[in-house]
Simulated assay, not measured.
Amino acid sequence: MIESVPAGSGVASTDPLDAGSPAVVVSGVGRIFAGKRAERAVNALEQIDLVVAPGEFVSLIGPSGCGKSTLLRLIADLDTPTAGTITVFGKSARQARIDQEYGIAFQQAGLLPWRSVAANIELPLELHGVGAAVRKARASELLELVGLGDFAEKFPDQLSGGMQQRVAIARALAERPRLLLMDEPFGALDEMTRERMQNELVRICAETGAAVVFVTHSIPEAVFLSDRVVVMSPRPGRIREVLPVKLGTADARGEALREHAAFFESVGAVRELLHGAPTSGALGVER
């Protein structure tokens, strides 16, 4: 599924943490899911503090059930925190949703099977009253961006899973959001397709300058994509460490990066943290 919402296109910074007012601020956030009995309540998140800068790519990783997707849903105002506050570009999460400040991509592409590829991309623009000529031009631009310029008139069942996800990302970008919220968008893809999609996403982010909050279970994926990796603890989910990944700017990352020693070092550091071991060194762990 995709929700898509507008804003201006940001400009990525070589140092995201110095790039002006934050894209997302999460302050003291907790989420408890009530049960029929008090003792059955689930404490999903506890005391989450996180700042995402404009143009920054931040991945959330942790064991199953640690609250990664819950945190993403709270930022998107698809759920409400029990404690704490969240702002998106200085607005409450609720107001940011109303003002259509971000695009969302989930694991399933959620394309409408009766609409062509171009018509799927145009859908959020159509819903917001954008004229047909502008919609068509924007869809064409985005299809070229995601490498599907020849597939505008095809239908979703004529596309591979990876191609469907490219269309879904294009739809999330339709209204030029400054922020993308992505919940395991490549989780259902085979490994080769997944790596190709990671390459595409890095390129797209470099071109659009959008900030990204990205949920994943894959350590190599988190390292390859991110400016910072947020490692979360088992439930109740807390931020165990935030690791800057110093592997170059988005537009400099390519397939060869996966063979670099620094990449393997970063993957190892994240793995150690997920298993509860402390780490230090080249990544520059933030505490």
Rank of each mutant, 00 (worst) to 15 (best):
M1K: 01
M1S: 15
V5Y: 14
G8T: 12
L17D: 15
P22H: 12
V25M: 08
S27Q: 11
S27I: 01
R31W: 06
F33M: 08
R40D: 15
A41K: 01
V42Y: 08
L45A: 02
V51I: 07
S59C: 14
G62M: 03
G65N: 01
K68D: 09
S69T: 14
F89R: 03
F89S: 12
S92L: 04
R97M: 00
Q100W: 00
Q100Y: 04
Y102H: 11
G110H: 02
W114Y: 10
R115S: 05
A119P: 03
L123V: 03
L123S: 07
E126Q: 13
V130E: 12
A137R: 10
A137G: 00
A139Y: 05
A139E: 07
L142W: 05
E144C: 01
A152T: 04
E153N: 14
D157Q: 14
D157H: 15
Q158C: 10
Q158S: 12
L159N: 09
S160F: 09
G161C: 06
R166C: 10
V167Q: 03
A168V: 01
A168G: 04
R178S: 15
P185M: 00
G187K: 00
L189F: 02
M192A: 11
N199S: 14
N199W: 09
I204R: 06
A206L: 02
A211M: 10
L225G: 06
L225H: 07
R228V: 07
P234S: 05
P236E: 10
R238F: 05
R240D: 09
G248R: 01
E255K: 11
E255Q: 09
A256F: 03
R258Y: 01
V267C: 15
G268L: 00
G268C: 02
E272T: 01
L274M: 12
A282D: 06
